[in-house]
């Protein structure tokens, strides 16, 4: 199947600010792409380009086979859903009225709008004015708005900012359901823990440049960050120490029976075998580098590159 979104060598400048630099990226049908980056990395600009709110300074943006600012943009927009970063809606209207207004604009039946309110858990509060809504409820309303008309592509800009942990899980749950239905999702975030399981692919932006993109496992390989191993039991003896050192393991700490090691990812199985053969150990846990660690790795690398470029 063809890609839902294609960005080909896209540049976007705002005066002297170079917001996106030669960015190429694709999103496949039913794929959830996580867009990671610091503030001002270009995440929102990228979304606006896909939505057709902004035109690229150069390069080509294609969404569902069309130019998002071209002739077919009007029909294209019926198939897109968008949740902006900060939206407070119309305080004087009730949640139901707000959603029905957007539903009419998107040519969606009023009945479907009411059903969506139920689905995001606002059924009870539908008649209350948005003014009285909490941050989480506003975000749910925003999500219901983005889901109007069963979009084929959903763009969520920081959908979990300011939400309590339960609400965050709800948002992730909804993304999982949509992914199951074949909807493509572009999700920007800098709240990293917990998001891994809900995204298929990650794109890391730094100062307008795409530093890395791929599956989380792919990025782990690319980064080559060490595995974190924790073991519990009797202190390591000398023979084991030298064996582990031979496998490239770095012993980071050893106090009151808790041993922390970091091992190169390629040696994972060998190191585990060594550890499991040791009768003095009671427990071993292995953690691959987390998404935070991967992000920090690429971000630091990206900033160095940018620094080098400026000096050159």
């Amino acid at each position: 199947m063809t890609d839902i979104v294609t960005l080909d060598a896209v540049d976007r400048r705002f005066g002297a600010v170079h917001a996106l630099k030669a960015l190429s990226l694709t999103v496949a049908p039913g794929e959830v792409l996580g867009l990671l980056g610091h503030n001002g990395a270009g995440k929102s600009t990228l979304m606006k380009l896909v939505l057709g709110i902004l035109a690229p300074s150069s390069g080509v943006v294609t969404v569902l086979g069309h130019d998002p600012r071209g002739r077919g943009a009007r029909d294209l927009r019926l198939q897109l859903g968008y949740l902006p970063e900060n939206v407070s809606f119309y305080d004087n209207l009730s949640g139901r009225e707000v959603l029905r207004y957007f539903a009419r604009l998107k040519r969606v039946a009023v009945r479907d709008a009411d059903r969506l309110l139920e689905r995001v858990g606002l059924g009870e509060a539908a008649g209350r004015r948005v003014r009285t809504y909490s941050k989480g409820m506003r975000q749910r309303l925003g999500l219901a708005q983005a889901l109007l008309g069963q979009p084929r592509l959903l763009l969520l800009d920081e959908p979990t900012v300011g939400l309590d942990p339960m609400a965050v899980q709800d948002v992730y749950g909804m993304i999982d359901t949509l992914r199951g239905n074949g909807t493509s999702v572009i999700l920007s975030s800098h709240v990293l823990p917990g998001v891994e399981r809900h995204i298929d692919r990650v794109a890391i932006l730094c100062q307008g440049r795409l530093l890395a993109s791929g599956t989380i496992d792919g990025l782990r390989q690319q980064a080559g960050l060490p595995l974190q191993i924790q073991a519990r039991g009797q202190p390591l003896n000398g023979a084991l120490r030298s064996q582990l050192a031979g496998q490239g393991v770095d012993i980071q700490g050893e106090d009151s029976g808790a041993i922390r090691l970091s091992a190169p990812p390629a040696e994972k199985i060998a190191v585990l075998r060594t550890l499991l053969a040791e009768p003095g150990l009671e427990d071993v846990t292995v953690e691959p580098p987390s998404l935070d660690a991967l992000y920090a790795h690429f971000d630091t690398w990206g900033r160095q590159q940018e620094g080098d470029r400026e000096h050159a």
């Binding site: 939505l51 057709g52 709110i53 009007r74 029909d75 927009r77 019926l78 897109l80 968008y82 902006p84 970063e85 900060n86 939206v87 407070s88 809606f89 119309y90 957007f102 604009l105 998107k106 040519r107 708005q145």
Partner: peptide
């Protein structure tokens, strides 16, 4: 200021 303008611009309007 409400953020609804940005949203409306993504609608067929």
């Amino acid at each position: 200021e409400q953020g609804t303008l940005l949203l409306l611009m993504t609608y067929p309007l």
